[in-house]
Design a protein around this nucleic acid. Structure first.
Length: 415
RNA sequence: GCCGGGGUAGGGUAGCCUGGUUAUCCUCGGGGACUGUGGAUCCCCAGACUCGGGUUCAAAUCCCGGUCCCGGCCCCA
């Protein structure tokens, strides 16, 4: 037997119905916010992902040389592709561009709960508007999506990476050294961050003030305490969020995020029920386009970990009922088999979901099968009824039966 | 990459510690009892010891390694 590769999954019909259901909710919410769907290649030139993210990222990318000697990588995320697409063919599109995508990504990592090597991300990007309105819109969409999915327990945290970046720059830490320090700070590894800061000549009081910043976390009352340009920006952002009706937002200046292309506002959504892998959504603002050779364009985006958020919904035990068949058509015997196909075909053309016996089953077994498919009605095709131009339909829940002329069958079944 | 726990028909399990008949039970699937009526019952059929090596007269059972799954660490764009 051939096994599935590690970290991948097969989705059976029941689960696929559930996934499509939630996927549609996300699409609908994105569209309702004026975003339009795009799709980019699942593989790209490896360079696209290494340009800004750095070499340690490469180890977790599925990359290979194709038959033409090109360095190709399965996408580990979609933001880079969307920005590439923007630079390649959308630079003169009216701004802001509001785009969303849904698709799988690949990372060579150790699989664990809520973490796979092939996983699905739903994300959105707003390109071209350098202001707090844009960040507010992105956060509003993320919040609306989580709400629409019905997740009950989640935390939305907003921070501003410009504050720590600015502080480090003021203390004389070179920009290219900031990334490593920020990573340590994100995880609150102060013991590891301190020596790095000292090595760049930062004094103890400077270190203290940086650490203090990472611990600024709480409610909106903190807004007044955050100074400088980022402080004004955050105040503006929160006013817009308030106007959007999003008030349950925490402030956490220690939120750094792993990628160093983020420059301004950063935000995350966590589902506490997920334990170690609880982050279900992450994003922020960045200026990625010039890294790929375009003009500097301000963008804000986020990605939802689709598998993870579905796992969270599962933990919260959200009920989901798949769609049922409208009817199951079964012949009473061999002599009406062909007629039952004619009837099924006709009902299908009329837009109903219809299944029909393919197993040459005896009627009682076929009825059992009809029950197993969950069809609302069984359409019993017998020669006696047919002689009157009719069939018997049976409501599978109540067991009630009635003789229905073929002409009115579709109507009777959709009632 | 590291640490720990696992893997017995499609799904769920007993057996494993203490090696020894045809590997347990439930469910699902196929057929029949039931020649025009389902989710009940009964009967029949089909279906498994994760893979490789070792120990042994004998391995599902003990030992080693691989693999996959689960939990955690590292990482997490």
């Amino acid at each position: 037997m051939i096994q599935r590769p590690r970290g991948t999954r097969d989705f059976l019909p029941e689960e696929m119905e559930r996934r499509r259901h939630y996927e549609q909710i996300l699409r609908q919410v994105a569209c309702s916010h004026g975003f339009r769907e795009v799709s980019t290649p699942i593989f790209e030139n490896t360079e696209l992902f290494t340009a800004k993210s750095g070499p340690n990222i490469v180890e977790e990318i599925y990359s290979f040389e194709d038959k033409g000697g090109r360095e190709i990588a399965l996408r580990p995320e979609v933001t880079a592709s969307v920005i590439r697409m923007f630079i390649n063919e959308m630079t003169s599109a009216p701004r802001p561009l509001k785009l969303f995508y849904f698709g799988q990504c690949f990372r060579y990592e150790r699989p664990q709960s809520g973490r796979y090597r092939e996983f699905y991300q739903f994300g959105a990007e707003i390109i071209g508007a350098p202001n707090a309105e844009t960040d507010a819109e992105a956060i509003a969409l993320a919040a609306a999506m989580v709400e629409a999915l019905g997740l009950r327990e989640y935390d939305l945290k907003v921070g501003h990476i410009g504050i720590l970046r600015g502080q480090l720059a003021e203390l004389g830490v070179p920009a290219d050294a900031a990334g490593e320090i920020l990573q340590k700070l994100d995880k609150k590894l102060y013991d590891e961050a301190a020596p790095l800061l000292r090595s760049h000549g930062v004094q103890e009081d400077g270190i203290e003030s940086v650490f203090a910043t990472t611990q600024v976390a709480g409610g909106k009352e903190l807004l007044s305490e955050i100074g400088g340009e980022p402080g004004r920006y955050l105040n503006e952002l929160f006013r817009f969020l308030d106007a959007y009706g999003i008030d349950d937002v925490a402030i956490d200046l220690g939120t750094v995020r792993g990628l160093d292309y983020y420059t301004g506002v950063v935000f995350e959504v966590e589902a506490p029920c997920l334990g170690a892998e609880k982050q279900v959504c992450g994003g922020g603002s960045y200026t990625l386009s010039e890294v790929f050779g375009g003009e500097p364009v301000f963008s804000t985006g986020f990605a939802i970990g689709f598998d993870r958020i579905l796992l969270a919904l599962e933990r919260e035990e959200h009920a989901f009922d798949g769609k049922k068949l409208d009817a199951y058509v079964l012949p009473t015997g061999e002599e009406t088999r062909e007629e039952s196909f004619r009837i099924a075909a006709r009902l299908r053309r009329e837009g109903l979901s219809v299944d029909v016996d393919l197993m040459r089953r005896k009627m009682s077994k076929a009825m059992k099968q009809a029950a197993a498919t969950g069809a609302r009605f069984a359409v019993i095709v017998g020669s006696k009824d047919l002689a009157e131009g009719a069939v018997t339909i049976r409501d599978m829940d109540s067991g009630e039966q009635s003789l229905v002329p073929l002409e009115g069958l579709a109507k009777a079944l959709s009632a």
